[in-house]
C-alpha cells in the first residue's frame, strides 16, 4: 500500500495518490448522486405509487401503472400505449437512419473543401444550434403553411387536399426531427471523415470493389467511431422528444415524450408518468444494447 510510484514526474506513495484521486472525484460523484442517481431512484419509487383524487401521490405500492402501460385498463385491453412506445422507437430509428444517410454526403462534401472554407461550411451546420429549439420548430409552421409554395405544390400533386398545410402530419414530424438532429450526427461523423485514410478507398477501388463494398470496407469501419457517437446522440434524445411531435405532429402523431409530458402536466398523474419514463428508459437501453451487440464485430464500441 505504501509503494513508491512516480506519477507524472512526481514521487508519491500509492496511498497518497488514492487519497488525491478521491479528492478530485468526490465533487463529480456527489453531483451525479444528487442530480442523477437519486432522482432516478425516486422515479422508480414513484412509478409504483398511485394517483389520488386531486393528482397527489398515493403510496400504495403496486404494479397498476405498469399494467396500464401494457394496455390493461378499466375498459379492457388497448394497444394505445404500446403503439405510442413502438412509434417512438420507430420515429427515433427513422430519424437516426435518415440523419446518417444525409450526413455522409454532407461530411464528404465539407471534408473535401479547402481548409479555409471548410470551417465556414461547418458553421452553417452549427448555426441552427444557436436558435431556440421551439423557435426552430415553429419556423417549420411558416415553411409548411398552406399559403406557401411547398404546400401548394403538394396540393397540386394531390398529396394533400387544397387549402391544407403540410402540418400537422407524420411528414412534418420527420422533417422537424431530422433538421433538429442532423448536426448531432454530422458533427461527430465529420471528425471521423476528416481523419479518414483515403488510400483505403483507393485500395478498394484498385481491388475491383463495387461502391457498396467500398463503403462497407473502406469507409464505414473508419468512420464508425464518429458515426456511433452521432447515432447515440440522436437516437436517445429522439426517443424522448416531445416538442417537435407536439407542435408538428398534432394529437394523431403522439410520441412517448408527449405522453410523459401529459402525465406530469395536464393529467397530473405523476405515478403513471414515472412508469412510462421507466418504460422508455428500458426501451432505450435495450436498443443501445442491440446496437452495441451488432457492432461488436467492429471492435470499436
Amino acid at each position: 500500500m505504501n509503494r513508491l510510484i512516480i506519477w507524472y514526474g512526481e514521487l508519491l506513495t500509492q496511498k497518497k495518490l488514492i487519497k488525491r484521486g478521491a479528492l478530485f472525484l468526490t465533487p463529480g460523484m456527489l453531483w451525479l448522486m444528487i442530480f442523477l442517481v437519486l432522482p432516478g431512484l425516486i422515479l422508480i419509487l414513484v412509478s409504483f405509487a398511485g394517483r389520488g383524487a386531486y393528482g397527489e401521490l398515493v403510496w400504495d405500492f403496486g404494479l397498476a401503472n405498469y399494467k396500464r402501460l401494457a394496455g390493461y385498463g378499466i375498459f379492457g385491453w388497448t394497444a394505445d400505449y404500446i403503439v405510442i412506445l413502438l412509434r417512438s422507437v420507430w420515429v427515433a430509428f427513422v430519424t437516426t437512419g435518415l440523419a446518417v444517410v444525409l450526413s455522409y454526403p454532407l461530411c464528404f462534401f465539407i471534408a473535401r473543401k479547402p481548409e479555409r472554407s471548410r470551417y465556414m461550411w461547418l458553421m452553417m451546420v452549427i448555426i441552427p444550434f444557436w436558435t431556440n429549439m421551439v423557435i426552430r420548430t415553429y419556423s417549420w409552421f411558416l415553411i409548411l403553411a398552406p399559403e406557401l409554395p411547398f404546400a401548394k405544390l403538394a396540393a397540386c400533386f394531390k398529396i394533400i387536399s387544397p387549402g391544407m398545410g403540410l402540418y400537422p402530419s407524420a411528414f412534418a414530424v420527420y422533417l422537424g426531427m431530422i433538421s433538429m438532429f442532423l448536426p448531432f450526427v454530422a458533427l461527430p461523423l465529420f471528425s471521423s471523415v476528416e481523419r479518414m485514410d483515403w488510400t483505403l478507398v483507393e485500395a478498394a477501388q484498385d481491388l475491383y470493389s463495387s461502391n457498396i463494398r467500398i463503403f462497407m470496407h473502406a469507409i464505414l469501419p473508419q468512420t464508425l467511431p464518429g458515426l456511433s457517437v452521432g447515432v447515440i446522440l440522436t437516437f436517445v434524445p429522439a426517443m424522448g422528444m416531445f416538442v417537435v411531435p407536439d407542435l408538428l405532429g398534432g394529437a394523431k402523431y403522439m410520441l412517448v415524450g408527449n405522453l410523459i409530458q401529459q402525465q406530469f402536466g395536464a393529467s397530473r398523474d405523476w405515478a403513471f408518468g414515472a412508469a412510462i419514463s421507466m418504460g422508455l428508459m428500458v426501451l432505450t437501453m435495450f436498443s443501445l444494447y442491440l446496437y452495441r451487440r451488432k457492432n461488436k464485430g467492429m471492435d470499436l464500441l
Partner: peptide, 25 residues
C-alpha cells in the same frame, strides 16, 4: 493492382480476407 506505400490493408479484415478481397469483389 497496386501495392500502396502505406500498404492500405483493411484493418477490420484478417490476413486471409485482406488477400481474398479482390477475388471476392
Amino acid at each position: 493492382n497496386t501495392v500502396f506505400q502505406s500498404y492500405a490493408l483493411f484493418p477490420h479484415l484478417n490476413i486471409f480476407e485482406n488477400i481474398a478481397f479482390g477475388l471476392r469483389s
